Computed example of a mutant assay.
Amino acid sequence: MYKLIALDIDGTLLNSEKKITSDVFNSIQEAKKNGAKVVLSTGRPLPGVTPLLKQLNLTDEGDYVICFNGAVVQEVKSEKVISNIEMTYDDFKTIYKIVKELDTKVHINTPTNVITPHDEPSKYTVLEAELNQIPIVYKSEDEIDDSITFCKIMIIDDPEKLEEILQVLPKEIYDNYTVVRSAPFFLEFLNKAANKGTALQALCKNIDIPIEKTIAVGDEENDQHMIKLAGLGVAMGNARDSIKDIASYITKTNNEHGVAHVIDKFILNK
Rank of each mutant, 00 (worst) to 15 (best):
D223P: 14
A247V: 10
H225S: 12
I227C: 07
H225M: 07
L229R: 07
M236I: 12
N195R: 03
C204I: 14
I207E: 02
D223M: 07
T214W: 04
E221W: 05
D245K: 13
T198P: 14
E220H: 13
K192Y: 10
G231R: 00
G237W: 03
K228L: 10
L190M: 15
E212P: 04
G197H: 12
A199G: 15
G231N: 03
I246D: 00
L200V: 03
Q224F: 01
K205V: 10
C204W: 04
D223Q: 08
N191Q: 12
I209D: 08
N238R: 00
Q201C: 15
G218Q: 01
A239R: 06
L200E: 02
N195A: 06
T198A: 05
N206S: 15
A199W: 01
M226T: 13
K192F: 11
I211N: 10
E188Y: 13
A247N: 09
V234R: 06
E220I: 04
D208F: 10
K228C: 03
A235R: 00
L203C: 11
I209S: 02
T214Y: 00
D223I: 09
A194V: 09
D245N: 14
E188C: 07
Q224H: 02
I215F: 01
C204G: 06
S248Q: 12
K213V: 03
L190I: 04
H225L: 03
P210C: 06
N191W: 06
N238M: 07
D245G: 12
G231E: 01
A194Q: 07
K205M: 09
L200Y: 03
R240A: 11
N195G: 08
I243C: 02
